[in-house]
Design a protein around this nucleic acid. Structure first.
Lengths: 339, 339
DNA sequence: CGCAATCATGTTACCGTTATCTTTTATGCC
DNA sequence: GGCATAAAAGATAACGGTAACATGATTGCG
């Protein structure tokens, strides 16, 4: 099966010699391009197989000026948000010959610049990146690169090329509507202290704005550092309720801390959703198994991934406006009163 | 800042002309290699910046016969286990100039072959892949490639080159010890029905073997299809207890379903850990916020990622045996009786 | 001051493919 | 059977960098 570990790496030439045809013909066979007779095709294929030849995309990419890679730049892996998006992207890219390559920025603009630079140096066929806020340098790079750029997750802003996402302002506002309609009035907010998480910021802005329209404002807010976890949700919930015991609703900036808050409140015997209502954001699978279903907003992650992928793959035309806005949809759950 | 969107992509030649030096000198500046005077360095850098030049790694890689990529091939992203591994890898690769590129196989051997083939066609500097079980074709490819290969997560088997992980047999056996020492005797198991999840299989084998040494065997087992979620954990727990109400312990093949099981049992009012003990596997952060801390085994994911990365980066020599076995460590939690 | 060592830069030849064009061979059709 | 046409294969020249070597400019030092 395996040839003795030859030191010199295999090239087209080796396959060409082994099968007695030109390198060009081998290349054609391996890429299924151009006319090759069934006989030679077979010869070449077996030669390639027995040698264990693996094409060199570095050389191929240089020669063809085309690389089947799509750069995907996102802030974080752990967020339990990203795997869904990537799932959507992969699913849609699967039959296009394009392959996603992921870069992670950790919500740092300078890391984002670096990651982008690095990705672009591979001359991908397209770029999908999270958010609409990018450094001047990043915008310039992307502009210059002259390839499809899809900014995902958010549509509240001016896309470089195309944007696919939900309006986080709207998501926040709609949740506010829901909460107010259910009669809650003393509302607290818990979120990360991350100036770079623009989407969380916009969500809160939309939320507060809507409260304002009803003559209300947040009765308390609590910010935390670092990653989101159930434990953090518990801590923050305890803290905010200790400070403001009269709150009748807690709006969490994501489901993970929302779930932590929910567990804590249930243990403490709070009457939910009667005495205290809760809501999160994202619509993650995790929530399905909680003792009580947390009300949340589905951020349409899979759809966003799919549409973004369709755009870079050219399966779908870029809309005139450059913006594809999906509707964030509230998933009622059981932690908010019926009205 | 940005030059008018020129159609022709920028090359070294453009920078060279703009700064009045040879392409070679530009190349040297951009890579910080070789001697260049401070003056020209500055000239080149500003030229590159104002043009918005991004190096072409395709061309560079071909010329230098060297690519700063490390292929990371894993079965799944959603597992909440691989993000940790990736974290460890990135952390350790950060100062080496190497960059991880992730491929996902969905536990399918044929997908694994395809992903590997694809990755190798980029001629990476090293490969990190999950598990010790690979197709003959995959082993041949890796053998042929002549680069460092680190198989991670598992050490129960024969590595192609080097392996870093824990012994899942041992992890299973040690958990069995713990459970037996606490006096539980009627033990049930809940896990995925995935013939390709070799690590889960080995864990169970080690577990059962140890039970056997004590003259016991599993009193019940329940397998499920598809992904692990809290909800699935609840369902499976309900099912196994309906079928075998006399069980006094449930060993879950991962923490997610373990957590689901725990929540269900608590709701049903089971006395835990008195009447019924529970244990999972992995040691994920999720567990920290549960109403009761689930007993589990820390699979050393971050350490595994780090060591693997150190090996491919050449920061650490390959051990004589080719195997780096980390110790799986039991995290007691509160769902198992004290003994 | 002269000569070797060092620094700074340039020249040339690939790296392993694929695009494009050319040549050779097979095929169809009246 | 001859000639237009298509199919199959090959030859050649990029693609955009970098390695390796060559060269010109400085510097150090007895």
């Amino acid at each position: 099966m395996n040839t003795k570990r030859s030191r010199r790496p295999l090239t087209l030439r080796d396959v060409s010699e082994a099968s007695g045809v030109s390198e060009m013909t081998v290349s054609r066979v391996l890429r299924n391009r151009g006319d090759v007779s069934a006989a030679t095709r077979e010869k070449v294929l077996t030669a390639a197989r027995t040698l264990g030849y693996v094409p060199n995309k570095i050389a191929g990419g240089l020669a063809s000026q085309r690389v089947n890679l799509v750069a995907v730049v996102i802030p974080s892996l752990s967020n339990m948000v990203f795997p869904d998006v990537l799932g959507g992207i992969s699913a849609e890219l699967d039959d296009t010959g394009l392959q996603p390559v992921v870069g992670v920025t950790n919500y740092s603009p300078s890391r984002e610049d670096a990651v982008l630079y690095d990705m672009l140096s591979w001359r991908p066929s397209g770029v999908i990146l999270a958010g609409l806020e990018h450094s001047r340098a990043a915008r310039a790079m992307l502009d210059n690169a002259g390839l499809p750029v899809v900014e995902i997750m958010d549509v509240d802003g001016e896309p470089i090329d195309t944007a696919v996402g939900i309006s986080h302002r709207r998501a926040g506002a709609e949740m506010a509507d829901e909460i107010l309609a259910a009669g809650y009035r003393r509302i607290g907010f818990i979120g990360t202290h991350m100036p770079e998480d623009h989407r969380a910021r916009k969500r809160l802005a939309g939320f507060e704005e809507r409260l304002g329209e009803h003559g209300l404002q947040l009765a308390a807010r609590e910010y935390y550092q670092g990653g989101s976890s159930l434990l953090k949700g518990r801590e923050m919930t305890e803290r905010i309720l200790a400070r403001e015991p009269e709150l009748d609703f807690l709006y969490f900036s994501n489901d993970m801390i929302g779930a932590g808050g929910l567990l804590w409140c249930m243990e403490k015997g709070y009457d939910i959703p009667g005495r205290l209502g809760l809501a999160g954001f994202n619509g993650v699978e995790l929530l399905d198994g909680l003792p009580m279903r947390l009300t949340t907003t589905d951020a349409r992650r899979i759809d966003i991934g799919r549409r973004a992928a369709r755009l870079v793959a050219g399966k779908e035309p870029r809309p005139e406006s450059g913006i594809i806005a999906l509707a964030p949809t509230i998933m009622p759950g059981e932690t908010i009163r019926k009205h």
